[in-house]
Computed example of a mutant assay.
Amino acid sequence: MPFAFGGPAGKGRIRAEPADFVVTEELSFALKGEGEHLFLRLRETGCNTAWVAGQLARWAGRPRHDVGYAGLKDRHAVTEQWFSVLCPGGRHPDPAALMIEGVELLEWRSHDRKLKRGALRGNTFRLRVTGLEADPGLLEPRLRAIATRGVPNAFGPQRFGREQGNLRLAERWFSGELRPRRDERGFALSAARSLIFNAVLAARISAGSWETAAAGDPVQLDGSGSWFIAEAGDDALPARLAALDVHPTGPLWGQGEPPGHGPGAELERVVAARFPLFAAGLAAHGLEQERRSLRLRVAELAWRTEDDVLELSFSLPAGAFATAVLRELLDVD
């Protein structure tokens, strides 16, 4: 993936300890306070989301599939996230007695539906970079540029799995070498889609068009999954793009051709043709063509430096990766 701003402005270390990487998620809906699903907001230190979900299932005496969460969080962090547990009739163990190593219960409420994947408004990050080596004359302008222009909305390396295991799984699945378990298939499909999207994004960065859109290109409203086709003669579009009101988009690959008829659509077809096994496999498994913003607004970006430490805070929409922000700022270990 090329850099949109010319490369890192320095280097440092992230996650020297879990408290250096704090993530707080915000649900996209209000809890009703009644229903058979017990919602628990937990603070986890050094815990894997799937592992915590298994512990909750054991605590409640329920099957694992009765536990829901909106997104996977990194184990090497302090995270605040919601889980739901189906408790028929509203009968459940006392939440105040919940004891899981590395987990603190912050609050609980009832709701009438299970927590689904992706049901987030977004996440807030508080990061601490130690061992900072950066020229303030480069770092400060870079931070201001990111606050004003956003960053390329790349999928982070965690999407591809440890040593790209999710991508390798997709390759073996699509080639007929194996049939993955049901709980593995979603990871494989997401990794294949992310590979093609990142490749398109890389091409747009190299061409200097990751922030722009031409007539015929699909354009997405900021903070929304809604998109429309840019029309010729839309004099307001450049100003809306500059204000981060709308963003150019890239493909989440699936059946059929990408929408639009502008130069972006032709580029997407050319890039996808470089990955015939993945493009065909995604279509064969019934995924539809969808869109994702090529650009990511970094909201409420604030920073403070002291000695060799940089503290950052910002908010990102659901599905975005903090690594997309960090890679444009610093080379982090």
Rank of each mutant, 00 (worst) to 15 (best):
A4W: 08
F5A: 15
A16C: 06
P18H: 04
D20E: 05
V22H: 13
V23E: 09
F29Q: 15
F29I: 06
E36C: 10
F39N: 09
R41D: 05
L42G: 08
T45H: 14
N48Y: 02
T49Y: 03
W51H: 14
W51L: 13
W59F: 14
P63Q: 13
P63A: 10
Y69D: 03
G71N: 06
L72H: 11
V78M: 05
P93M: 08
D94T: 07
P95C: 09
P95N: 06
G102A: 06
V103I: 15
E107R: 14
R113K: 15
G122F: 02
L127K: 08
L127Y: 12
R128S: 10
D135E: 13
G137T: 00
P141D: 10
L143G: 07
R144F: 04
A145N: 08
R149E: 14
G156H: 04
G156P: 04
R159P: 02
R159L: 01
Q164E: 15
W173K: 08
F174G: 08
E177N: 06
R181L: 14
R181I: 01
R193T: 00
I196C: 10
I205Q: 03
S206K: 15
S209R: 09
A215I: 01
A215L: 02
G216I: 00
A230E: 02
D235H: 07
A239F: 07
A243S: 13
L244F: 10
P248F: 04
P248H: 11
G250K: 03
P251C: 11
Q255E: 15
Q255L: 10
P259I: 05
G260T: 01
G260V: 00
H261A: 15
P263Q: 03
G264H: 02
A265G: 12
A273P: 07
L282A: 13
A283F: 02
Q289V: 00
L294Y: 08
L294E: 06
R295A: 04
R295Q: 11
R297L: 10
L301F: 04
L301N: 09
L301C: 07
S315A: 15
L316R: 12
A318P: 14
A322T: 02
V325F: 04
V325N: 02
L326E: 03
E328L: 08
